[in-house]
Nucleic acid binder design. Structure first.
Length: 270
DNA sequence: GTGAATGTTCATTC
DNA sequence: GGAATGAACATTCA
């Protein structure tokens, strides 16, 4: 599920329900999702503390902790979430109303309810850093965030690359936040073939690409996911022999950059 | 049984 | 060194 819009939705869930509330306990149902940490360390860092304002960069969610009654200090720990392909955050109301889901791996318990890290495939998970200065090394490998990047910095991120367009846009070190569905959607709208080289884009191509990226991200963030609208490519990508929702030409699919890729041969010529 | 699934990382090869 | 490819991770579903 998670691309940038999904993670932004999880950030809002955390901000709305968990921020400012005291963490009473942490239950680790499956330690397999803890990366570079362990249940006692997570418990020690979170119990009795509260989440401060959560931040997002690409598909990474950072939830700094602070001690109730005190300001955030640089030595406070931060919980870092990555949701892989199947993860998410779920807020339940009252504990007794909501039985545990099979895929609830880590549960943060509050007086008002529970914040649950739910994940089927466990491709990624939860990290813990003990101070602010440990965050930078984790995030240093990420390019600018796809939602907040300026047009100038977007051009800058692509400058000098000689790569296929789709793998370049999905590379989190180039631009952070776009995944398989979003990139197909954006390229379809910008009328750019996924295998086109970044090096032969004109200024007008890059401008269309940036505008359509903003457009797709805005609508997706509003929905908290990439919508499957009938007028979007994404609404049809799972149908064999589906027509292009814009021109009716049968969509084509193959693998680009190791990922299933759907495009319209008429709207997105070579 | 096989392949694919909205992700990332590592090794290998060009 | 950069870019492309394939495998690995874990799990379910068609």
């Amino acid at each position: 599920m998670p691309e940038l819009p999904d993670v932004e939705g999880f950030r809002r869930i955390l901000a709305e329900h968990a921020t400012g509330r005291r963490i009473q306990a942490v239950t680790v149902e499956d330690p397999g999702v803890l990366r570079d940490t362990n249940p006692p360390a997570l418990d020690g860092a979170t119990r009795g503390r509260m989440f401060a304002h959560p931040d997002r960069r690409g598909k990474w969610l950072m939830a700094p902790l602070r001690t109730p009654g005190q300001r955030h200090r640089s030595r406070d720990p931060t919980v870092i979430f990555h949701f892989g392909m199947t993860g998410g955050l779920v807020w339940t109301g009252r504990i007794h109303d909501e039985p545990r889901h099979r895929d609830d791996r880590v549960v943060f318990c509050f007086a008002e309810g529970e914040l649950r890290y739910r994940d089927l495939r466990k491709l990624h998970g939860i990290r813990l850093v003990q101070a602010d200065d440990a965050l930078a090394p984790l995030l240093s490998r990420l390019g600018p965030d796809a939602w907040t990047v300026t047009a100038e910095d977007f051009d800058q991120a692509l400058a000098g690359l000689r790569r296929q367009l789709k793998p370049a846009l999905m590379d989190q070190a180039v631009l952070a936040g776009l995944g398989n569905l979003l990139v197909d959607e954006i390229l379809w709208r910008a009328r750019l073939q996924p295998r086109r080289s970044t090096s032969d884009l004109t200024g007008a191509d890059r401008h269309r690409l940036y505008r359509q990226m903003r457009n797709v991200l805005r609508q997706s963030i509003d929905r908290g996911r990439v919508p499957g609208y009938a007028r979007w490519l994404t609404g049809w990508r799972d149908d064999e022999d589906a027509p292009c929702p814009r021109c009716g030409t049968p969509l084509r699919r193959s693998r680009v950059g190791g990922r299933t890729t759907v495009w319209c041969p008429h709207c997105q010529p070579e």
